[in-house]
């Protein structure tokens, strides 16, 4: 067992973990952070995307021990003071989710995308979200939501 110290959604956790424990299982099974779901075993679907020190990662392909000393942001920590993050709000406004299983990962990946490209074209959004699969929406409304979320983020952060 290895002792790790990780801040998740603003809360510091110190835990003993097996070296092989995946970050996503650490979040879900150990910390009860079940807002981050698992969609595949092979890093293809992106449902488990979280931010690790500010960048999006697929938490099924990160070991919990690799997150030692890091800041993890999950979908559960995204809203602040009761207000949705602009990207969460945009997904709601644009009907960019149906079953919602891919949504946490999609939102967190989209926020990371917008950090790099604050005013993305539709093509940039589609390319940037290639690692996040959705089976319900056909992506049209996700693209719209990310565009809207990017505009709102620009306003909010000015």
């Amino acid at each position: 067992m290895t002792r790790i110290s990780v801040t998740v959604d603003g809360v510091l956790y110190e835990e003993e973990v097996e070296p092989r424990l995946l970050l996503v299982h650490f979040l879900r099974d150990r910390l009860g952070k079940t807002g981050t779901p698992i969609g595949c075993d092979t890093t293809n679907c992106g449902a488990c995307t979280v931010h690790l020190d500010g960048r999006s990662v697929k938490s099924c392909s990160v070991l919990a021990v690799q997150a030692d000393g890091s800041q993890v942001l999950t979908i559960e920590g995204l809203a602040s003071n009761g207000s949705l993050h602009p990207m969460q709000q945009a997904f709601h406004e644009e009907h960019a989710l149906q079953c919602g299983y891919c949504t946490p990962g999609m939102i967190l990946a989209a926020i990371d995308l917008v950090k790099d490209d604050p005013d993305p074209t539709d093509e940039a959004i589609r390319d940037g979200l290639e690692g996040n699969l959705c089976r319900c929406t056909g992506y049209c409304n996700i693209v719209r939501a990310v565009r809207r979320g990017a505009q709102e983020m620009a306003v909010t952060h000015d």
Binding site: K33, P37, L97, G100, P104
Partner: peptide
């Protein structure tokens, strides 16, 4: 949407 975009979901797992 509210619960789905904030991670307050109740998936079986």
């Amino acid at each position: 949407d509210g619960r789905l975009i904030t991670g307050r979901t109740q998936w079986t797992d």
